[in-house]
Design a protein around this nucleic acid. Structure first.
Length: 176
DNA sequence: CGGTTGATTATCT
DNA sequence: GATAATCAACCGT
């Protein structure tokens, strides 16, 4: 897997869109741990999203892995993604986790020391900064003005989402 | 192709 | 009890 798209989230009190915004909870405690650890969490009752913890302990900054290109074990990835088109195998944070076959067990494990199910490695060559674009984060309902989504220009695996489609569900129930 | 909608549950208020 | 860092399916064009 080669990462093609990520989003950054800051720590407590610094980022309205971050899970760590309101301090430690049982769910986000991993974010307050060591850099390089995996913070996996369940969203919308059906999907997993994966973050890599950044910064110092207690800082609770993290990077959400939004998309990637499957470079090894593509057969397995296709099976796990129910034979979706190759461009869609890891296009989106939940799809990426699904293509990797990760789940609750990977939460809190290290992605940098080889002790966990996933190992992050640096690119073999430096990335040309001209190929890296940035923009507003996808799907978040706060802090649209912070352009902390980064992706590689021209990658077919990058999620093409434009903006957050507001969930305009009424906060009340209409009685006829 | 672009826009909209239902699914489904852990977590926090 | 409302909400959510989403996705797949379905619509009309």
């Amino acid at each position: 897997m080669r990462l093609t798209e990520v989003e950054a989230y800051a720590g407590t009190g610094e980022d309205p869109a971050s899970h760590a915004q309101r301090g430690p909870t049982p769910r986000n405690e991993v974010m307050f741990g060591s850099a390089g650890n995996i913070y996996l969490y369940f969203v919308f009752g059906m999907h997993w999203c994966m973050n890599i913890v950044c910064g110092h302990e207690g800082e609770a900054a993290a990077v959400l892995l939004r998309a990637g290109e499957v470079t090894e074990g593509i057969e397995v990835a296709r099976e796990r993604r129910n034979h979706a088109p190759d461009s869609y195998l890891a296009r989106g944070p939940a799809r990426l986790v699904n293509a990797l076959g990760l789940g609750r067990d990977a939460n809190g494990t290290s992605a940098v020391d080889g002790s966990g199910p996933m190992l992050l490695t640096p690119p073999s060559a430096a990335i040309d900064p001209a190929l890296v674009a940035s923009g507003p984060r996808v799907g978040v309902t706060a802090a649209h003005d912070i352009p902390w989504r980064f992706w590689l220009v021209g990658e077919p695996s990058v999620s093409p989402y434009r903006r957050h489609t507001p969930r305009r569900r009424p906060t009340y129930t209409v009685i006829v």
